[in-house]
């Protein structure tokens, strides 16, 4: 089953058939009428694109409509998808997984607000990279939340990878330092560092994150090679603030968008990408170990319009 099928299958549930709704309206003329515009606006807003991104897309759509005068609703939708896709930051150069070649240990730091799916994503990535023949080490950097270490431990067992963990309340920076030392000694290929969820507004927690980052650099100057911000796909406009604030604290190189197996579309990443130009690497589509996919711009925008 292709990724798109899988996505469609999972995303389609409560969605209305907007395509059908617009089809009737468009037949009446060659200009985008108010009703259709409103429908398009509704599609975009309810997909969490936010007001300004929506307006931007609608404007460019109107301009194209004037020039190209599409007669079929299919074409209008095609245009809409294209306009959205334009806003998506391409994954530049080599994908994260290709960058790993020859760099050991390749350090990936995982950050985000509470409950977005950081630990689960690490579990899935550990599995994915193991299957690619990599030797993985997990660092249980969430020493704050009750049983967070135990949760990651279970994920480590699921793909039989190593884990460095300490008791609750331990200093996460010290733990990360030890984990990297251990990764070097054991010649791990990839180190995945879990961190506690933190709201971007909490100054002390963001300082703690910066400290973790510095400690990583101290151990391996080029590291972290990737710092992925995990965003909950059901989050609305606040995700923009999350991305901004986390980017200010540490250099975010990629995004992971989770929980797209529900009915949420995660459209706020379009707004984030416009502002911060950070690509989305992966999407989470379930709680299972295989429920992680590479992000594909076209599939993503299609799922919004579907």
């Amino acid at each position: 089953m292709s990724i798109l099928d899988k996505l469609k299958q999972r995303l389609v549930k409560t969605r209305e058939n907007i395509f059908g709704r617009i089809a009737g309206i468009l037949q009446s003329g060659a200009k985008i009428d108010e009703t259709t515009l409103e429908k398009i606006e509704e599609i975009l807003i309810t997909a969490d694109l936010g007001v300004s991104t929506t307006q931007k897309i609608v404007q460019s759509l109107q301009q194209r409509f004037k020039k190209e005068k599409p007669e079929k609703p299919e074409l209008l939708f095609h245009m809409l998808e294209e306009e959205m896709e334009k806003l998506i930051v391409p994954i530049e150069g080599v994908h994260v997984e290709k960058k790993m070649d020859g760099v050991t240990p390749f350090v990936i730091l995982i950050v985000g607000v509470n409950g977005t799916g950081k630990t689960t994503t690490i579990g899935k990535l550990a599995h994915r990279y193991t299957q690619q023949g990599k030797k993985i080490l997990l660092a249980a950097g969430d020493t704050f939340r009750a049983a967070a270490g135990g949760q990651l431990e279970i994920w480590a067992q699921r793909s039989s990878v190593e884990i460095v963990r300490q008791k609750e309340g331990a200093d996460p920076a010290a733990l990360v330092f030890d984990a990297l030392a251990s990764a070097k000694a054991k010649q791990s290929d990839v180190v995945l560092i879990d961190t506690a969820g933190r709201l971007h507004t909490k100054v002390n927690l963001m300082e703690e994150l910066k400290k973790i980052y510095r400690v990583i650099q101290k151990q391996i100057p080029e590291a972290p090679h990737e710092t992925l911000l995990v965003l909950d796909g059901t989050t609305g406009q606040n995700a923009i603030q999350q991305a901004k604030q986390f980017s200010q604290a540490v250099k975010i190189t990629g995004l992971v968008l989770t929980k797209l197996d529900g009915t949420a579309k995660g459209g706020v990443v379009l707004a984030i990408q416009q502002e911060l130009k950070i690509p989305v690497y992966y999407i989470g589509i379930g709680e299972g170990i295989d429920d992680l996919e590479e992000f594909h711009a076209h599939d993503f925008v299609q799922a919004i319009v579907e």
């Binding site: 409560t14 969490d48 909950d232 059901t234 609305g236 529900g262 949420a264």
Partner: peptide, 15 residues
């Protein structure tokens, strides 16, 4: 419900 939830809140709550 997560206070940061976006537009999807209505779908989940309704169901």
């Amino acid at each position: 419900a997560d206070g940061m939830t976006g537009q999807d809140a209505v779908n989940t709550a309704k169901e």
